[in-house]
Design a binder for these strands. Structure first.
Length: 271
DNA sequence: CCGGACGCCTGTCGGC
DNA sequence: TGCCGACAGGCGTCCG
């Protein structure tokens, strides 16, 4: 799924719909997610007011009176805002029923996502404790990234997707940012000149920002909370475009597997 | 610490 | 038409 722009797009919709509302009930149809949904989760949430909906990396942090609900959408997850009476479809695993008759419905065919309880300070939760900085936050600078990449021999693309270095960039946007920055995804992280690292930081910011504005990228499973597709798919430069002309120089886009993930890039523009 | 491989799941698509 | 392998947005864990 869902990388940072898709989660952020979902977050904004949820904040608008749920902040200030009370959770009337929680319906768990299938507990078998990446980690089992805790037996006491529904009890902890029922009757609580939703105070805020935040995001850290690809996690949604839904703050209620007595703690935080931690939601990750995995590879194929999405959250829809629906009338609570709407009949559930296959793979609709959890409903957060609100006091206005609507619900936040979690759909996830592959069940790689999670719904966990995180307590009052979610940043201390084991899943969040070792995450790198937010790519749209002030700590993500060229100087900082250049230092983090120093001495690293792994392909820069792998390092961009390493959540301990940078939080929230997945396969789509790593491909796209490296294309915008003109950097070969196979290049060792420690062998990128400082000026080009600056360009990479700008490219990550630019691509993520544009994707958020477009409501994210829908490839297959992801949809926005109203069921609409994310529009950024039309603006992808290289992702999934093997053999098509490079938007910049018209040379055919190449595909290679790097770090067990498909990678698309332009051999002429990216060095 | 680092880099690379492997599962966890279900669904879809292309080739034979 | 049917079967089978490859592949898909993430990421914790294990191994050398």
């Amino acid at each position: 799924m869902p990388e940072l722009p898709e989660v952020e797009s979902t977050r904004r919709d949820l904040a608008r719909a749920a902040a200030g509302r009370t959770i009337a009930a929680v319906t768990v149809r299938d507990r078998r997610l990446r980690w089992p949904v805790p037996a006491g989760l529904a009890r902890r949430l029922a009757g609580q007011e939703v105070r805020e909906v935040r995001r850290r990396a690809k996690y949604l942090l839904i703050g209620v009176g007595n703690g935080t609900l931690l939601v990750h959408l995995g590879m194929s997850g999405s959250l829809r805002l629906l009338d609570a009476q709407t009949a559930p479809q296959p793979h609709d695993h959890i409903d957060l029923v609100l006091d206005d008759g609507r619900c936040v419905r979690y759909h996830d065919p592959r069940r790689f996502g999670c719904w966990l309880w995180a307590g009052a300070d979610p940043t201390r939760h084991w899943l969040l404790a070792h995450l790198g900085p937010e790519p749209l936050g002030p700590a993500f600078t060229g100087a900082w990234l250049h230092r983090r990449l120093r001495g690293r021999t792994a392909p820069v693309k792998n390092l961009l997707m390493d959540s301990r270095i940078l939080a929230g960039v997945g396969n789509i946007y790593a491909n796209e940012a490296l294309f915008v920055a003109g950097i070969d995804p196979r290049r060792a992280g420690g062998r990128i000149a400082r000026r080009r690292v600056d360009r990479l930081v700008c490219a990550v910011r630019q691509v993520l920002g544009a994707a958020i504005d477009a409501g994210g990228t829908t490839l297959r499973d992801y949809v926005r909370t109203d069921g609409a597709a994310g529009e950024f798919v039309a603006r992808l430069g290289t992702y999934g475009r093997e053999g098509e002309p490079c938007p910049s120089c018209a040379a055919p886009i190449a595909r290679e597997v790097i770090g067990q993930r498909s990678t698309w890039f332009c051999r002429r523009c990216q060095r």
